[in-house]
Design a protein around this nucleic acid. Structure first.
Lengths: 188, 188
DNA sequence: TCCATTTTTTAACATTTGTAAAATGTAGCA
DNA sequence: TGCTACATTTTACAAATGTTAAAAAATGGA
């Protein structure tokens, strides 16, 4: 298991000791496209790290679903709200492709955080990086129009454009699917 | 210094040992309204915790400034981008009122993170909470219209509405100041 | 108090984006 | 192939928001 973990970028900052410890709590699982791994209305007992596949996090509204995050190989799938506040939240996570994932019990992760310095700092850095990325997207909603945001998404996430349904990308970019269609049409 | 720190909510999860350690690196400073504590184009050597006062984080664009965060007593003032990537970023932090702040060297914080388990977990939780708040705001940009976002801001941040310039609140809510004026006018 | 500056509001108009519905395209399967 | 379900695009119209400029109101200092 350690060998497999080593190939995942997110673990590269961990020393062997921490990696081995994490590996003892890791189980490699496979799930099919369409599986909802994290449910907004439940306190989920696990978190996951994508070995291969694609995922999206989304929030349910009255008339629509907003996709606010995409995950690819190496990314952590975790409901931060459920994890921090220990109650159900706003995040669902769905697999958009057949995927293989490292599954770890959140209870185990909590214990490790309280026992192991390197892992606590590893968890800190994951949250900090995610925070920067989210903050930038929030700022981009004001600075850039939908066309610019789409162009940059295409450049920076070419794999996602190929495989993910446009309705998900539209809500990720903060527009309706009709608007996204119009943007795409203006480039032909 | 420990006594003063104890009164700040963000330290409440820390045990005495951790609190004392942090206190030895803390300096209480005062700055006037208008002071820019964190500059986007510099790697800032300090981070701050607001004891009293109000701050905003903003990003500069060609024609505009986007305020993406407000800080009040107990909040951490920190450029995560500069802190994590060790290079200048997109975040400026300005004081909107005369403020008193605990000042700590980032270099000291880094050392403490690598040495002290409770502090590493403390830093992790701060980032995680900030992440949730930012993620929710991003989602709200899609689910709620500007009027709803303004109403909720008024309800949840009554102190800020009283003291902060409306132009900053407008960009925080993701609209122009003209639009915010229209929203406000429709309530009279 | 008065003046200068800044902030906020108002107005008119342009543009973008949303909504609803229909048309078209696509993929899987009997 | 033809059927079905679903995804995407297109159209017409409505609503929200942006832009620019000017007026009004508020603020801070001499």
């Amino acid at each position: 298991m350690q060998e497999k973990l080593k190939n995942i970028k997110i673990f590269s900052s961990l020393n062997n000791d921490a990696l081995n410890l994490l590996a003892t709590h890791c189980k490699l699982v496979n799930h099919k496209k369409g599986t909802i791994l994290i449910h907004a209305d439940k306190v989920e007992p696990y978190f996951y790290i994508l070995e291969s596949g694609i995922a999206r996090a989304y929030s349910d509204g009255e008339n629509q679903q907003i996709t606010f995050w995409f995950g690819q190989a190496g990314d952590v799938l975790l409901s931060y709200n459920s994890y921090i506040n220990n109650n159900p939240g706003y995040e669902n996570i769905e697999l958009l492709e057949n995927s293989s994932l490292f599954q770890i019990k959140l209870a185990d992760l909590f214990k490790l955080y309280e026992q192991h310095l390197a892992l606590a700092n590893w968890g800190r850095k994951i949250a900090e990086r995610e925070l920067i990325a989210t903050e930038r997207r929030l700022i981009d909603r004001s600075f850039k129009d939908a066309t610019q945001r789409y162009r940059e998404f295409v450049n920076q996430q070419p794999e996602l454009i190929k495989t993910v349904a446009l309705k998900h990308i539209a809500s990720y970019l903060g527009v309706t699917q009709v608007t996204l269609s119009r943007i795409r049409a203006s480039y032909k």
